[in-house]
């Protein structure tokens, strides 16, 4: 009896295996055909760093305040600056990011008060020569042209308007660099709302920016 039972269960299991592979034959493959298809990167993914420009004027948001360079734990950012004699504002003359040492920690983005530097979901930056990994200002600006972003200050203001009870008296709303964990959550919510508005009515953005 044992032999018969073993044989039948063996045959059953062999057929079961065939059935499983047959089912899998018609399933959609899980492979992503990489150069043809790409994942949509999450909004807050920490990929290549870019310099953001003002969408209206096309000029860099960077004021060369050196906060990002100081925040950088591996000293990947080098900035040289000059002062505009007319407007008395600083602007960077040199901004290099050494991606060979960059650890993509995102501290520069958190440190920036002027929406000038951002980690993006871009990731295809392989080069054949190591020297090309030293990103210059123009290149950083160029790859950051199409990056959409929400102004930190505006988001903070909106947050004040939307929820005045919570945010009143808190200094950190104006300094998003030093956010606590709770505030971060709130902030991201507000950012989403602000983003909705800006995308719906892009023309309103101009005058508001100037007043700021």
């Amino acid at each position: 009896m044992g032999l018969v039972k073993e044989t039948t269960s063996g045959i059953y299991n062999l057929l079961l295996g065939l059935w499983v592979t047959f089912k899998h034959l018609f399933r959609k493959p899980v492979t992503l055909q990489y150069p043809d298809e790409r994942w949509e990167m999450p909004e807050r993914s920490r990929g290549t760093i870019v310099l953001l420009s003002d969408p209206e004027t096309g000029e860099l948001n960077c004021t060369a305040c050196m906060l990002c360079a100081k925040a950088c734990p591996v000293a990947a950012i080098t900035i040289e600056r000059k002062k505009d004699p007319e407007t008395k504002k600083n602007y960077p003359t040199l901004f290099t990011l050494d991606t060979t040492v960059c650890c993509y920690c995102g501290l520069c983005e958190q440190a920036c008060n002027f929406d000038a530097i951002k980690l993006t979901g871009k990731y295809e930056f392989s080069v054949s020569d190591k020297s090309e990994l030293l990103y210059e200002m123009d290149f950083l600006q160029e790859i950051g042209r199409d990056v959409k972003y929400v102004k930190k200050k505006k988001a903070a203001k909106k947050a004040k308007k939307a929820a005045p009870k919570k945010d009143t008296g808190e200094k950190s709303a104006e300094k998003p660099a030093a956010k606590t964990a709770e505030e971060k959550k709130e902030d991201s919510n507000e950012e989403d709302k602000a983003k909705d508005k800006t995308s719906g009515e892009p023309k309103e953005k101009g005058p508001e920016d100037k007043t700021e």
């Binding site: 592979t21 899998h24 034959l25 018609f26 399933r27 959609k28 493959p29 899980v30 492979t31 055909q33």
Partner: peptide, 13 residues
Amino acid sequence: KVSAHMQQRYGPM
């Protein structure tokens, strides 16, 4: 192709 699709891959493409 058969082996690839049984393992939910594409095989040569």
